[in-house]
């Protein structure tokens, strides 16, 4: 939400007098193969998937049909987590540069602890431990809904991923904010803006452009790491692939198709990131 308002803010401004900015904005507003030849890779991978499905409907078409809800789950888990990760990262990043020792301490502790534990361990931990804790809490408070609490796999998975990736995102946001010269904040404050107004309108829009590549990286890693949720009963693409394989005993075809499906999603994501990057470029000092 915050990142998108930042984006909206700058994009909106850019559109208004696009012509006068030809000098400062690298032309690259169009999504087209001519402007970004890497789209050919997307086309190629998509074509391979298409060919396999058409030429050998058994088993490739079957795999795709069987796993299509898994593809959707993978996308939902990724996008929903990423949305939350950006918010956590923004808060964590601001906490990591806070002059308030308590806020700084909490943010730093969060980053250091969470970064040191494998995502898979965190996922399994949240999935198996959090319901027990909530149920115990329910017994203690004598609240029936809590006592009967059962973990929702998807929500638990999104929560675990958000906590884990939020730590990395916090560090990315912190580095971005620190890359903006101190004078920008001082100039904004000297005009009477509050700390948060200055952050929102002056520092973050500039930091955002700097951290776009690592933020894109995080998204692509996340898309792949979302396959880990298959171990906590989330029926994502990987889990559906496994189910198909155990039913039909054709590991080569199954994992080839699953791999291609992941690949097409990640390279599309990479193109989108690169498009946003080109759109938001401006000349720096």
């Amino acid at each position: 939400m915050l990142a998108s308002t930042l984006l909206d803010f700058t994009m909106e401004e850019q559109k208004k007098n696009a012509r006068s900015r030809e000098l400062s904005f690298v032309v690259g507003g169009e999504v087209s193969i001519r402007q970004d030849p890497w789209w050919w890779l997307v086309v190629a991978v998509a074509a391979i998937i298409g060919l396999l499905v058409i030429l050998w409907p058994v088993p490739f078409r079957e795999i795709v049909v069987f796993a299509r809800d898994g593809i959707l789950v993978t996308m939902v888990v990724t996008v929903a987590s990423y949305f939350l990760i950006v918010i956590v990262g923004l808060l964590g990043g601001l906490g990591r540069i806070s002059k308030n020792k308590l806020v700084f301490g909490i943010a730093s502790l969060y980053v250091e602890v969470v970064r040191g534990i494998p995502l898979l361990v965190q996922l399994i931990g949240w999935y198996f431990a959090s319901p027990v804790i909530i149920q115990k809490l329910g017994l203690w408070l004598n609240l029936q809904p809590l006592i009967e609490y059962r973990a929702n796999p998807i929500i638990t998975a999104i929560m675990a991923i958000t906590v884990c990736y939020g730590a990395y995102m916090s560090e990315i946001v912190r580095s971005g904010i620190q890359s903006v010269p101190k004078g920008q904040m001082e100039a904004a404050r000297s005009l009477g803006m509050s700390y948060f107004q200055a952050m929102r309108h002056v520092v973050l829009p500039q930091a955002f452009r700097v951290i776009l590549p690592p933020m894109g990286n995080e998204f692509i890693s996340l898309l792949k790491d979302s396959s880990l949720v298959s171990v906590v009963a989330v029926a994502d693409l990987t889990r559906r692939g496994r189910e198909f394989m155990s039913a039909h005993f054709n590991p080569i075809e199954t994992w080839l198709m699953v791999a291609l499906l992941y690949l097409v999603m990640t390279i599309v994501a990479a193109r989108v990131v690169s498009y946003i990057e080109k759109r938001s470029k401006y000349e720096r000092y």
Binding site: T10, E13, N17, R21, P181, G183, Q184, E186, A187, A188, S190, L191, V202, P205, Q206, R209, Y282, R284, Y285
Partner: peptide, 13 residues
């Protein structure tokens, strides 16, 4: 306030 290093907002016109 006017600064030695200008400090114009670099992302704005």
């Amino acid at each position: 306030m006017v600064f030695q290093s200008f400090n114009l907002f670099a992302h704005l016109t």
